[in-house]
């Protein structure tokens, strides 16, 4: 998972955000020493609850930048993902997807799937960017863990978005494939070779299928009021002076991003 830590490291640097403001709740157990080098606050939480936990962190202290990293997002955490997107809770969700078909782009994958991928052998995976987009996520992108530069730039860009951003990272997860030695790098390379960059593609068309190369890139980049924005606006309207807006007004933190 070090490639994700590296990407986070670079992304945070590029976004120009003070590291102490960043919290990373994750259901993937990262190595403590690696996390320490990031200089952020890290929480390893029960499977699937990264977004819900992150929602609490963000609402408890709106100045935090929260980056839920989710390995079990596609299973236990699906509900928190769709609702977080709907609310447009200001979170950057890194969704680590380790699904792989037996064939991708017509080529056989380096191994036939283990019995326990996040899905049974014969199931189709989610089209995560499409799902996120349909629920209201303001930013969706997909990269493989080998697209290090692009992934870091995406993280930087998404960190400066207001609302729920989702970056799907195709990477072998620690839980499912750890029994298969040496698969990680091989699989990554395979992903890398069998993906094609399609920025701004309609998320509807980026499903991962056995017949096509994997579409990577940034698919959604839009603006919507965040949960805290709506909360403040609505309560100020109704309660007037009795209500103190929650958190500080949005700061513009643009660095290297070209938000639309």
């Amino acid at each position: 998972m070090n490639s994700i830590i590296d990407a986070l490291d670079k992304g945070i640097e590029m976004a120009g955000i003070a590291r102490k403001r960043i919290s990373v709740p994750s259901d993937i157990p990262f190595d403590p020493d690696a996390v320490k080098t990031l200089g952020v606050d890290y929480f390893q939480i029960p499977r699937g609850r990264a977004i819900a936990f992150g929602t609490g962190l963000k609402l408890g202290n709106p100045d935090l930048k929260v980056i839920p990293v989710a390995g079990d997002l596609m299973t236990l955490g699906g509900n928190h993902f769709v609702h977080g997107s709907r609310r447009n809770m200001e979170l950057l969700v890194i969704c680590v997807n380790n699904f792989v078909y037996k064939n991708i782009g017509g080529k056989p994958a380096p191994f036939t799937q283990a019995v326990f991928s996040p899905y049974s052998t014969f199931e189709e995976p989610f089209n995560f960017p499409h799902l996120g987009n349909s629920c209201g996520a303001v930013y969706t992108a997909r990269w493989t863990a080998l697209h290090a530069e692009e992934l870091a730039a995406s993280i930087a860009e998404a960190l400066n978005k207001r609302g729920l951003s989702m970056i799907e990272v195709l990477a072998p997860g620690p839980n499912y494939y750890r029994s298969i030695d040496g698969i990680e790098s091989e699989l990554l390379q395979f992903y890398f070779n069998n993906s094609v960059v399609k920025n701004n593609e309609d998320p509807r068309n980026v499903a991962i299928t056995p017949d096509e190369k994997i579409a990577v890139g940034k698919f959604t980049d839009k603006e919507r009021p965040t949960f805290i924005d709506s909360y403040n606006v609505q309560h100020s309207k109704m309660l007037g002076d009795k209500f103190t807006p929650h958190g500080s007004p949005p700061k513009v933190e643009k660095l290297g991003g070209k938000n639309g």
Binding site: I45, P46, A52, G54, T55, G56, N61, N79
Partner: peptide
Amino acid sequence: GSISAIIGATWS
């Protein structure tokens, strides 16, 4: 979600 959120908020 509720209980995860309050544990998160407590840590903030």
